[in-house]
Write a protein that binds this DNA or RNA. Structure first.
Lengths: 157, 157
DNA sequence: TATTGTTATACTCTATAACTATA
DNA sequence: TATAGTTATAGAGTATAACAATA
């Protein structure tokens, strides 16, 4: 190794840079945690939202998670084929689908959450409970600064 | 708007979820900040590292930023064609290129950093200086938990 | 034999635009 | 006319594998 002591230069004091690297570390850890479940980040998030909001439709799931309508389609197909969510025409609006987690989906979700929590404990092992809650609070305040979670603007027309 | 008060369910207490959303908000803000400079996240990071480490080679840049060798090629080409970095065969190792920021590159970097700092001030407007430094500290501690920044394992052979 | 850079390629994620069927 | 879902497609970003030149 001929060259070491490399500096990241102007990146060092930027919050965005550290947010990116921290996110990357968590992301890799998430992938490891999900090994064998067949769940990836976004499908896991979708399952979580559907389970928490019985009868929700695709558009609403996309809106809260920042996923475009067009990209929801294959996501939902994947989860339906996997047998973890159930899709039925909405009784009140025949354009929409009513989504629900299946019993199997709730089992998978619980299993996934358990794995993730254990992995997060590893990632945050050197933080006190107070520090973790400070981190969550600071991150939540940044999120609120993001645009109105408008996952889909005037894409049509 | 027929359905509101949607919950993210099991995602709510997960640090990884909030890290992802916070990162997304910063990411969108970064893109807006860079409008007109022609710089994207990764090229900006590469320019920053090259400027801070005169004569560094591609592999070392990739190693510190977590970018694979193969993906460095077009990145460096792009920055060279843009005239912001300079590539010359390394005098001590004729396999390697010695990279340097051009005067124009340093100007662009300074301009970009100024823009980003102003945007970050907007994103972090509701945080005290103490809170910002706490955030940076907590993020840095998470980063350190990531794998040895091995951007390139035994890809060959 | 290991390393630097290269090419080719593939897969995931996300984005836009145009379409249909309902409302 | 607006909305829910769909299809097709394109662009990033990142991954692997095999190769040449040099160490």
């Amino acid at each position: 190794m001929s060259r070491d002591q490399v500096s990241v230069g102007a990146l060092a004091p930027l919050v965005g840079y550290h947010l990116r690297r921290a996110w990357g570390a968590f992301s890799a850890d998430f992938t490891a945690a999900m090994e064998g479940t067949g769940l990836r980040q976004v499908p896991f998030a979708v399952l979580s939202v559907v389970a928490a909001n019985p009868g929700i439709n695709q558009g609403a799931v996309g809106r809260i998670l920042g996923i475009k309508r067009a990209n929801m389609v294959s996501l939902i197909n994947e989860l339906v084929e996997k047998g973890v969510i159930d899709r039925a025409v909405d009784a009140n609006d025949r354009r929409a689908f009513s989504l629900n987690a299946t019993p199997q989906g709730n089992v998978l979700l619980a299993e996934a959450v358990g794995r993730i929590e254990r992995h997060e404990q590893g990632m945050l092992a050197d933080m006190t409970p107070a520090e973790r809650s400070t981190l969550l609070d600071l991150l939540a305040r940044i999120e609120r600064r993001s645009p109105p979670t408008e996952a889909d603007d005037g894409a049509d027309a």
